[in-house]
């Protein structure tokens, strides 16, 4: 399992004067679970958007499975839960899942998708009548339906209650155990700690730490018994002092 799922090389993206992503190099090996951590505005969403071909990079290259992003998207090897993506009114959960199944070449079964996403009993509910957490689960179902090799999740558990979160991460673990690649961004540090093989900490568009959760703690100089929160704060508040001065003008 050392094929490369995601490769970003020297990728920069500016929005006006702000460098949202600044000369980023990132390689994600196939079959791993990678967490993208960072404070608001660190460039997590922009990085993900470039990975999916939604936003072009100003400079640098992005490849998925060794080829252009658009090829991987067209071949149905990628699916995503995006922060700003939603469904259209009038469709039911089942409509949405069936659509996703029809669009991907090797979909999972409808029953298993609904069960994995915790949507049993909600299949005929209209997506515009779901609660925040339910609608997040429906988006998970949509992403999962095509059994993609790479699953990209931008803050996936927003709006989910504790039980839903637990079920969600259990599903992700099972999914990753089958050799799938999962990349997710989150503010919930314990999620990264519990689920990810590797944690990438972004600040001001740059990687400030990259490694297994334990190594991140060590690098930040906090003891292994401390939570990842302490390491995260240590990493993202010290390093960016110089960065902040750079981006101001």
């Amino acid at each position: 399992m050392n094929a490369v799922a995601v490769h970003l090389s020297g990728v920069t993206r500016r929005f006006g004067a702000v460098r949202a992503v600044d000369d980023l190099d990132l390689t994600v090996e196939a079959g791993t679970v990678v967490a993208l951590l960072g404070p608001n505005g660190a460039g997590k969403t922009t990085t993900i958007a470039m990975m999916l071909g939604l936003v072009p990079a100003d400079t640098g290259t992005v490849t998925l499975f060794g080829g252009p992003v658009s090829d991987a998207v067209r071949a149905g090897r990628v699916a995503a839960m995006l922060q700003d993506a939603g469904f259209v009114p009038g469709a039911t959960v089942r409509d949405v899942v069936e659509l996703a199944r029809a669009l991907y070449p090797h979909p999972l079964g409808t029953g298993s998708i609904l069960a994995t996403a915790g949507l049993e009993g909600l299949a005929s509910r209209r997506v515009d009548r779901l609660s925040g957490g339910e609608s997040q689960r429906a988006r998970f179902a949509f992403a999962l339906a095509g059994d993609p090799d790479l699953l990209v999740l931008d803050e996936p558990t927003t709006g989910m209650d504790v039980a839903a979160r637990r079920q969600f991460w259990a599903a992700i673990r099972t999914y990753a155990a089958d050799g799938h690649t999962v990349l997710f961004s989150t503010h919930q540090l314990h999620e990264a700690d519990d689920v990810a093989d590797r944690v990438v900490v972004l600040t001001a568009g740059r990687i400030v730490a990259d490694g297994p959760p334990a190594e991140i703690r060590a690098r930040a100089g906090v003891s292994t018994s401390d939570s990842l929160d302490a390491a995260f704060l240590a990493l993202t508040t010290e390093m960016p002092a110089t960065k902040a001065a750079e981006t101001e003008h």
Binding site: L52, G53, L54, V73, R74, A75, G76, V78, A79, A80, L82, D84, A85, G86, F87, V88, A100, L103, Y104, P105, R139, F142, G146, V152
Partner: peptide, 9 residues
């Protein structure tokens, strides 16, 4: 929704 569709085939 159009964003969601753009990351499908």
């Amino acid at each position: 929704w159009l964003h969601q569709l753009r990351v499908t085939p």
